Lab assay of single mutants.
Amino acid sequence: MDTYKLILNGKTLKGETTTEAVDAATAEKVFKHYANEHGVHGHWTYDPETKTFTSTE
């Protein structure tokens, strides 16, 4: 398992979190669920070199 990072740049919520996942697709599902639960619906990007997802509203 690898550690993946999420950076949230929402209108009402900003911050970072991490998750352990078997691959990027699994981490993306976890992070999108997390963002949706916190009302963040933004544009998603992923940097495979740093294993970092960013959601920007």
Rank of each mutant, 00 (worst) to 15 (best):
L13C: 15
K14D: 05
L6T: 02
A25E: 12
N36D: 12
G10K: 03
A24T: 06
M1H: 09
A24G: 04
T26P: 00
L13M: 14
D23G: 03
W44F: 11
D23Y: 02
A25F: 10
H38F: 12
K5S: 05
H41L: 11
E28F: 15
A25D: 09
L6A: 03
W44S: 01
Y4I: 02
H43R: 12
W44H: 01
H41I: 12
T18P: 01
N36S: 13
E37K: 12
K5N: 05
G15Q: 14
E16D: 05
L13V: 14
I7D: 03
K51M: 06
A21T: 04
T19P: 01
M1V: 11
E49Y: 11
G39V: 03
V22R: 13
H41D: 12
E37M: 14
K11A: 12
E20Y: 12
Y34G: 01
T52K: 01
G10A: 05
H33W: 11
A25Q: 11
H33Y: 10
G15I: 15
K5E: 03
K11H: 13
L8Q: 01
K5M: 06
H38T: 05
K32T: 06
T52E: 04
M1P: 09
T56D: 12
D23E: 03
K14E: 06
D23L: 03
E20P: 05
N9W: 13
M1A: 08
E20C: 14
G10W: 14
E57V: 06
K11V: 14
W44D: 00
T45P: 00
F31P: 00
E16L: 08
A35R: 02
K51D: 01
V40G: 03
K51N: 05
H43C: 15
T18Y: 14
T56Y: 09
V40N: 04
G10D: 03
E57N: 04
K51P: 00
G39D: 07
T18N: 05
H43F: 14
E49P: 08
S55E: 04
N9S: 09
H41Q: 12
Y46M: 01
A27H: 01
F53C: 01
G10C: 09
E28H: 10
T50G: 04
K29R: 13
K32P: 00
T45I: 07
E57Q: 05
P48I: 08
D2T: 14
L13N: 07
K29L: 12
E37I: 13
T26S: 13
E49D: 13
D23A: 03
K32N: 05
Y46W: 03
H41T: 11
T18F: 13
G39S: 05
E37L: 14
D23T: 05
S55R: 04
Y46L: 01
E20K: 13
T17I: 15
L8W: 10
F53N: 00
A25C: 13
G42F: 06
T3V: 12
E16T: 12
A27S: 01
H33V: 13
T45F: 08
V40P: 02
A21C: 07
T18Q: 09
A27P: 01
A35M: 09
K11C: 14
S55C: 15
H33M: 14
A27D: 01
K14Q: 13
E37W: 08
N36Y: 14
T17E: 05
Y46F: 08
W44E: 00
A21N: 02
K51F: 08
T52Q: 03
V30S: 06
E28K: 07
T26C: 07
V40E: 04
V40R: 02
T3W: 09
T26G: 08
L8M: 10
H41E: 11
G42V: 05
K14M: 09
K14F: 10
E57H: 05
Y4E: 02
N36L: 14
F53E: 00
F53Q: 00
V30W: 14
W44V: 04
G42H: 04
K32D: 02
L8R: 00
V30H: 12
D2H: 15
W44I: 06
F31A: 01
L6D: 03
I7R: 05
T12H: 14
A21M: 02
E20T: 12
